[in-house]
Amino acid sequence: MDKRWLQKQVRNCLRHYGYDDEMMPLSEDEWRDLCAHIAAAKEKQQNTNMYELVHDAVYRFITSA
């Protein structure tokens, strides 16, 4: 999975939820955790669209933050 592409998808999703990169930047650990969570979800649910997996992971991140 392309890391830059995945981070772009996560950024777009974060913006959708009103999360601004400049006001609240993600730490390296947060990026790594989000990307790892998405990659693990894709392994388990191979037929699920990446868009859905990214949105699920970002939603969980935002609601638990």
Results as ranks from 00 to 15, higher is better:
A40V: 05
H16A: 13
Y51M: 10
F61W: 03
E22W: 12
L34N: 02
Q45A: 12
T63C: 09
K42G: 01
E52S: 14
T48C: 08
E30P: 02
Q9T: 10
T48R: 12
N12K: 11
R4L: 10
L14W: 06
D20A: 05
K3V: 08
Q46I: 14
T48W: 04
M24C: 12
Q46M: 11
V58K: 02
R15H: 12
I38W: 01
H16W: 14
K3A: 11
N12Y: 02
K8T: 14
L26H: 03
M50L: 11
L53I: 06
S27L: 01
E52Q: 15
Q9D: 09
N49V: 15
R4D: 15
Q45P: 01
L14D: 04
L34Q: 02
D33T: 07
E43C: 01
D21M: 10
D29Y: 07
D20T: 05
H16M: 12
E22K: 14
D56F: 12
T63K: 10
F61G: 10
E28M: 10
D20L: 04
K44I: 07
K3M: 11
R11I: 09
M1C: 06
I38D: 00
K44A: 06
S64M: 09
P25A: 00
T63E: 11
N12Q: 13
L34W: 04
V10I: 15
M50Y: 07
E22G: 14
N49R: 14
D20G: 01
D29C: 08
I38M: 02
Q7R: 15
R32M: 11
Q45T: 09
E43S: 02
P25R: 00
S27D: 04
L53G: 00
N12M: 10
L34G: 03
C35G: 03
F61D: 09
Y19M: 05
W31A: 04
M23E: 15
K42R: 06
G18L: 01
N49W: 09
W5M: 08
D20Q: 04
M1V: 08
K3F: 08
A40R: 06
G18Q: 02
M24S: 09
L26P: 01
E43V: 03
Q46G: 13
A57R: 00
E22R: 11
L14M: 11
Y17W: 09
A41Y: 00
V10K: 02
H37S: 13
R4C: 09
K3W: 09
E30L: 06
D2F: 10
I38Y: 01
M24E: 10
N47K: 15
Q9F: 03
D56A: 08
Y19K: 04
M1A: 06
A57D: 01
L34I: 07
D33A: 06
Y51I: 11
E52K: 15
H16Y: 15
I62H: 04
H16G: 03
Q7N: 12
S64D: 08
D2H: 11
E22H: 12
R60N: 12
K42A: 05
L14V: 05
